[in-house]
Nucleic acid binder design. Sequence first.
DNA 1: TTTACTGCAAATTATTTGCACGGTT
DNA 2: AACCGTGCAAATAATTTGCAGTAAA
Lengths: 178, 178
Amino acid sequence: MSRFPARSDWIERAEATLTAAGHRRGGARRALLQLLDEQECALSAQEIEDALRAQGADRSKSATGLAGAAAGAGSAGARGANAAGKGVSRASVYRILDELEGLRLVQRVETGQAMVRYERVSERAEHHHHLVCDECGVVMPFSDPGLERAIETLSERVPMKVSEHEIVLHGACRDCAV
Amino acid sequence: MSRFPARSDWIERAEATLTAAGHRRGGARRALLQLLDEQECALSAQEIEDALRAQGADRSKSATGLAGAAAGAGSAGARGANAAGKGVSRASVYRILDELEGLRLVQRVETGQAMVRYERVSERAEHHHHLVCDECGVVMPFSDPGLERAIETLSERVPMKVSEHEIVLHGACRDCAV
DNA sequence: TTTACTGCAAATTATTTGCACGGTT
DNA sequence: AACCGTGCAAATAATTTGCAGTAAA
């Protein structure tokens, strides 16, 4: 029963970066950082809002029902929500996400599902991409060194100063594939 | 078997497929097919609507410098637009695009620009991906055999029956890169 | 105290849908 | 004539913004 799972590198870096950028530390932001850090894959704003609300309502429960439906992200218990237990407003979710994206702490993931997903950007090359099941909508991560290598080489030959790349494979997951 | 060199394979295939699917041939659809076929890269619904409206208003002029594929809108080109010259309604643009996507004649391209782009799906392996300049928003195509090979190999090892893949490189184009 | 952080609700923007009419087969 | 295709306008859904109260530093 770890009550204080060592503040991950990411959270530390995030808070440091935010502070450096002249920001204070509000409850909503902290809850969001905590949640994103626990995730294994990208979440949509809606999922984030729901998860935070759930945490607020019942903080002893592992508020990870969201992952079941959309992403297979299993998080440990959640504790970081705002002490009051009210959840975070949608506006704040978007605002914070936008802010974090600007600081390169979070990145958008376009899965062709009518809404954008967001996930933390890890410094330690845990760089990964996504598989999207067009049937059930599940989103899962994958990574492949060969692919990264190909992208890197390619980036040199292209008429652009490449800073990011996103790869999404669409198809049918095992459960959906006949 | 056609006698009009202007009608590309794609348009023929598209119309055949649409007919097979039990559709008639309205003016809006034809204009849209024609436009998409002329493009070299993905267009947004807005761009499509504007282009078609422009064509409708002044059919002797090539469709406003869109993706640079303004070629041949003259004699052979504009012939497809609705004779009246009124353009195509937004609703139709979306409806037709959706229809074409379902028939795999067109594919969506997510460039992280708040709207989806669409482009024709060519049968002849002209398979390509996209470069997006985050500064000016320009979108250009690129293709790389090595990358495709890597994707193909990878698709076998992943827990999903992959049917499509999308790769987007973000960065600064030559004009925007300082 | 100062100024950022938040929530709430109204405002936007891209995309979709209902309905009636005109066009294609 | 039978029905699909299309335009128009209203309806949605996701995301953004204005404003006022709350809370870090």
